[in-house]
Design a binder for these strands. Structure first.
Length: 652
DNA sequence: GTACCTTCATCATA
DNA sequence: CTATGATGAAGGTA
């Protein structure tokens, strides 16, 4: 997931030191703020009690034959060999496109940072992307920029929500956030190029056009065609370097590897204007030239977001070449250009994965390797499927499926209990809610502890300050990995910051943990907050919006209370999540009151946007020394197979 | 659920 | 150099 760094020269002199350049701000809650979704359908409570899990019983057992075959595309990012990332080499350099590449602000910033080597710290001392990084990205820089964008965007959302001005104010958090980043020069891959963009991988997903823009995948904020001037044989000519296919037009997708793309311009689709033909200029001209040059064109596919039908998700589907072009006539009669793009073979599948998932969901044809349709047996409102298409193992060892903690450990309250008395539902920015107020000031980042509303509160159960209590929101799947046992992934895309699941199980104490250690498999299905976790911080909210003051910039990231959970006998999907040294999921301590007592829970949230079918992983951390029977050093550890460039080699 | 309608930011052209 | 225009966006409203 992290390879391809040093590919395009100009090494930004080492990884970014986030702790130095970034200022993490406290946030109010971890609920993902989507501009318009009602967020919680609140489709009722869980059926009380436990639901037993019978791996071999029941009528819905999968077909008997050995599940095998390639019906399920491999996870996009999980096990990529280093080959895919670094094609780079053949890029035609956009020499002429370069002259106007830098925006004014970027230029001035570049001037300021002229001498700066490595991580630049801008005048205010906080965030910076070096001039080199601004021109050519890397996985790390892209990740940083995406995360920063989303952090700022959410904060703007929360501020808007809290103000509740609603005086017809247009809430374009994406534009505002983009503005902020652009003006600070926080963007990358500004140098246009043909072919792969360093740091952006095939299968990566985006929730706004602006995200494509700031990572340099596709520059125009609205337009579907991005182009570049190159030196032709005799004169300069323009070629296409990327397109966005929104699927809404007349673009046809006969199969996963072919797109019939319609040119731009012409009033053939508007009803007020009179019909005009498209002209062979701008993007159309670029596509035309590219069909002769046969250069690679990046393709981004726009897909309707199932969870949020009003918005779209953009999937980077890799490189295509224009194989054919012709003139056609739209229904309205206007002449249009058509271009046939064919996917360059040998690339990891991206859009094809989405298509397969659609088929899985429609249940037709029945899926290869499906063992159980819902291993939660109804305990979750969305089924949890169990599949194995790599070997003959039929099911994980027996356990009881339960959605939360059993025998939860309670803590005496610091103050007398008072849940909030909000009338309906609490929103993240609202300081009138006493629960939200306990979380301190605004924001959405990882916190030492987050207070959620609970049963004691007056607010509705679908209140937004109960993110971790509303059950699974995504169609999760337990699947057999090639070399790491069972793993967890989602059939749905997961937006950065979204709640994924709680770590369910039985709360145990240190003595019991030590006993398990002696028995051998202490690490199996145990979550232990007393372990040492690197990089506890997430969501590097930079101090970009001046109007918000930091009242607590120095935060203690040690755990407030120890909590050890065993999911060996009782648990939910979280027990199947594997370790990775560069994970896409983080855990977060959550506290809420129930029966006049406070209970601590552990919940998981997405670090970044996660495409469907990508394995979900979090960092298991390192066993703290000084307990657990002393000799845990090399014995209790397992060789790490996460494959990350930052891999520590072992875990446990 | 669809159809407009308003306000957007960017980059290439003029 | 700066202004202008084209443009498969997003969100809200009818």
């Amino acid at each position: 997931m992290e390879e391809g760094l040093a590919q395009n020269s100009v090494p930004p002199s080492g990884p970014i030191d986030k702790s130095r350049i970034l200022d993490v701000k406290p946030m109010r809650s971890l609920i993902p703020v989507f501009p318009m979704s009602p967020q919680a359908p609140a489709s009722g409570q869980y059926p009380s009690g436990f639901s037993p899990f019978f791996p071999f019983g029941g009528p819905q057992q999968g077909s008997s034959g050995a599940p095998r075959g390639g019906a399920i595309p491999a996870p996009i990012q999980a096990y990529r060999s280093p080959v895919g990332a670094g094609e780079g080499g053949t890029s035609m350099d956009g020499s002429s496109g370069r002259k106007n590449a830098a925006s004014r602000s970027a230029r001035s910033a570049a001037k300021r940072n002229k001498k700066a080597v490595g991580v630049p710290v801008d005048a205010s001392g906080l965030v910076g992307i070096s001039p080199a990084q601004r021109e050519d990205g890397s996985r790390e820089v892209v990740h940083l920029i995406m995360t920063t964008f989303d952090a700022i965007r959410r904060r703007i959302c929360q501020l808007d929500d809290a103000k509740e001005l609603s005086s017809g104010s247009i809430k374009r958090s994406d534009l505002k956030a983009c503005n902020t980043l652009m003006s600070k020069g926080i963007r990358t891959n500004l140098r246009k190029r043909v072919g792969a963009v360093p740091g952006v991988e095939i299968g990566d997903i985006f929730y706004f056009r602006m995200e494509l823009c700031i990572v340099g995948l596709h520059a125009p904020s609205m337009g579907g065609i991005d182009s570049l001037h190159v030196k032709g044989e005799f004169e300069e000519e323009i070629i296409a370097i990327s397109i966005v296919s929104s699927g809404e037009y007349d673009d046809e997708a006969e199969d996963n590897d072919v797109i019939i793309y319609t040119g731009q311009g012409g009033n053939f689709n508007k009803k007020d204007k009179h019909v005009t033909d498209q002209k062979l200029e701008r993007g159309n001209l670029a596509l035309d030239r590219s069909s002769r040059q046969r250069n690679e064109v990046r393709v981004i596919r726009g897909i309707r977001d199932g969870a949020n039908p009003n918005s779209k998700i953009y999937v980077y589907d890799g490189l295509y070449k224009i194989q054919d072009s012709w003139v056609d006539r739209a229904k309205s009669g206007g002449g249009v250009f058509k271009y046939k793009l064919v996917r360059v073979p040998g690339q990891p599948s991206a859009f094809a994965v989405w298509k397969s998932v659609q088929k899985f969901k429609s249940g037709f044809p029945s899926r290869t390797g499906l063992i159980i349709g819902d291993l939660s047996s109804g305990a979750e409102s969305i089924p949890v499927s169990l599949v194995n298409d790599v070997d003959n193992v039929k099911a994980p060892a027996y356990f009881t499926y339960f959605h939360s903690l059993r025998h939860p450990k309670s803590f005496s309250l610091m103050q007398p209990s008072h849940g909030c008395s909000c009338g309906k539902s609490c929103v993240p920015g609202d300081l009138n809610c006493s629960c939200i107020r306990r979380n301190g000031s605004i924001l959405v980042s990882r916190r030492p502890l987050i207070h959620e509303c609970g049963p004691t509160c007056q607010c509705f159960p679908n209140c937004k300050n109960r993110a971790s209590q509303t059950g699974l929101k995504h169609h999760m799947e337990v699947f057999k990995t090639k070399d790491r046992g069972w793993g967890l992934r989602s059939l749905d895309p997961i937006r950065a910051g979204s709640f994924i699941c709680e770590y369910a199980g039985e709360v145990i104490d240190q003595a019991r943990l030590n006993q398990l250690a002696k028995e051998g498999d202490a690490n199996e299905y145990v979550f232990d907050t007393t372990r040492i976790y690197e990089e506890f911080k997430w969501n590097y909210e930079p101090r970009l919006l001046e109007e918000v003051s930091t009242n607590d910039s120095t935060e203690d990231y040690t755990m407030p209370y120890p909590l050890i959970i065993s999911a060996k006998n009782v648990g939910n999907v979280a027990r199947f999540m594997n370790h990775s040294c560069s994970p896409n999921v983080f855990w977060q301590p959550i506290l809420y009151e129930e029966n006049n007592q406070s209970f601590l829970h552990v919940a998981f949230f997405a670090i970044s946007h996660i495409p469907p079918m990508t394995e979900l992983t979090y960092d298991y951390g390192i066993a703290s020394s000084g307990h657990a029977g002393g000799s845990r050093d090399s014995k209790g550890k397992k060789r790490c197979l996460c494959g990350s460039s930052k891999c520590r080699g072992s875990f446990g």
